[in-house]
Design a protein around this nucleic acid. Structure first.
Lengths: 223, 223, 223, 223
DNA sequence: GATGAATGAGGGTTCATTCAT
DNA sequence: CATGAATGAACCCTCATTCAT
């Protein structure tokens, strides 16, 4: 693999002026990404839209990648804001209520900036920022897992890591696919049904079940 | 949006000589994608690896995009081969068995060429081939939906479209995330557990349930 | 200067089959030139339109240039056909009638295929075929000069070469500019005026003049 | 017709540094055109000769065409400089003197850079810059026509547009053909004869004539 | 710090021409 | 002779990055 360009912001951007420049750059990048796609997002163009010189861009971001990474981070941070809050609120809720909340929040999170989300998902070749995305995923995983472990009593006996993995994957996938490929489901009514169904699935999976059929279902046919 | 480059193969490539060239090109592209990433996959390099001149590349593919699209198509076709077969086999199976089969096949499909799958998912900016991918998704959706409708009697009363959407999303997400991010789960033993769990979840969701709790779970708290 | 590609047709094309192929190629070239411009006239495309393989093209024309040269030659030959005929007819006419005829024919000649004429004039970078064009010019010059010399008695005493040069340039320029840039002058009525005027100019120039003013005009102010 | 590349310079190039670069590029282009022909004038080569990087070339010219257009414009501007000046000087001159001046200037103008003029005329496929050339032609036409109209009293009764067209075409053609194809006529002596003759022709055409023969010449034989 | 002119490697693509079949 | 697949030099152009001012 070729040497990858650096990816971390060059300074803490604590000074107010710097801060404004950095923000303008990230914002400009996001805007171009959304409005014109990744291909059109050249550093010169970004600087221009941000009202800043290319030189300044490189003062704050060591590479184009770092800039894109910042956009991704910012987007993820917005999502994480919702998710963290939700998980705090959820801490003392019973599973069913909690899952419903999480499903709802997942969809909301994907709706924060769906166009940006799509571009990020479809057009951005990931090279260096995988780590950031993974960190993000890990945090979600940890938070959810912690919650699930705290609710062990209401649940079947499952490996908590596995359960977390399956539930998070499921919820994320439903939210993602809905927002990106089935916008028609986002009407208030239909979204409610979607949330109901997804919740039912996840809760049905996690919760202890008195249905012998279901218990059997989880085991392969003997032999 | 700027005009996108053409994407369809230029000739039917029926002659054997041509066919060989086309294959070599697609194969070379896939190999470079896997071994060196999207960035290194320049047309000149692809042609070189394919043992062919750039001119020949453009004789058969009108653009670099078309070539990548061909790789994607080929990969999807391999996946669809498995999936179609599985769905044929599944036609007369009861839900539990069928879902287990589909989950298994989904994981197998993602393991056909996981590295390529990852590159395709993470590094390739989707531009023109969205249609192909959507067609692929639609086919899967249709096949699954048809199966589910044929099994209506064993299922809860759910909107079949919605059910299909949720199940397909779930299974795909689990398979995708497992293969790409949790290769450690692919040991024979652990994969079995994973399949069991996923199956349990989906079947629990689809099948009629005698558990009143679960039935309640799907409805929001009154008021 | 770099070595220029060969330009002469490869064979005399005496066989009928060959002749047909050659014609098809020249015709196809002319058609593409007119309909799509020089840039689109690739040898592969020409061969395709001619219903022949590229290989065959190169059987008869050693280079693309040779093909274009052939088109130019054919076009010039058509023009020369008119001009030669006109000059034969003109041989025994008095100057005024003769010039009128030549002006008329010049315009007619430019109207044979004005679109091709324009492309030839505007879009074709001349490299090798200058010789052909010069030969064409020389022939016209010679024919006209011969005529003028035969009419010496009706003319002022002028250097025949110079007179030929001026008259041919003038007539050619008027015809060329009219057809290419002032198509609106080609209505029957207006063209008549144009021919009248041009004829008047040329004849006034050639013929002996009884006007002392004019005679004076030709001499610079003494000192 | 395919979309044509842009043709206007990219920046105003007001800064001195930029200005120098732009000049170097135009100059290099002209030089290569003259010394090696259009075919050899690749953007990379032009930049190299200009002592500048290709990138800089594209900073100031959006396409190769734009660069060539700039060369053409510059050349036309030099010509127009002479022509405009001449027409100012000519404003109060009688026709004979004026025409002589214009003929002289036309030849001078073509001698400014005859090699460039030839390349421009023979090798450059006109694509986008037709408008510029037409504008140039229109300006000449307008200036000359204005002069002629101011001299109406000394002239025959002719449609001024037509007269302008014929005179301009004639003078331009003579100058063009002389400089490009009959350099041997450019010796001081011979050029004088050429100017005399051309002047005689044009003046004889424009001026009122007492020669009944000539007046008759302009009319077709009755019936 | 900020600026933006300059850089140049490298990318995608074309097309005249060749030659094995 | 005809075919058309193959060739590859060369072209135009972009854009992340640098650095003198």
């Amino acid at each position: 693999m070729a040497r990858k360009p650096p990816t971390k912001p060059r300074k803490n951007a604590s000074q107010e002026r710097s801060r404004a420049t950095v923000d303008a750059l990230v914002e400009a990048t996001a805007r171009i990404l959304v409005k014109e796609g990744f291909e059109k997002a050249s550093t010169n163009r970004i600087a221009e839209i941000a009202g800043v010189s290319v030189g300044s861009l490189y003062q704050y971001f060591p590479s184009k990648e770092a800039l894109v990474a910042a956009v991704i981070d910012r987007h993820n941070e917005e999502i994480m804001g919702l998710v963290r809050t939700a998980l705090l609120e959820v801490a003392n809720m019973p599973i069913e209520q909690a899952v419903r909340k999480l499903v709802t929040v997942a969809i909301e999170a994907h709706r924060i900036n769906p166009k940006l989300h799509r571009v990020l998902a479809e057009q951005i070749p990931r090279t260096g920022q995988l780590k950031d995305v993974e960190a993000f995923n890990r945090e979600v995983h940890t938070l959810v897992r912690t919650y699930l472990e705290s609710r062990r009593k209401e649940m079947r006996k499952i490996d908590p890591g596995l359960a977390t993995f399956i539930c998070v994957s499921t919820i994320e996938a439903v939210a993602h696919n809905t927002v990106l490929n089935h916008a028609e489901m986002l009407s208030e009514k239909r979204v409610k049904v979607l949330v109901d169904e997804t919740t039912r699935m996840v809760v049905g999976y996690l919760a202890v079940s008195s249905n012998p059929e279901l218990r059997a279902a989880a085991k392969p046919a003997p032999g």
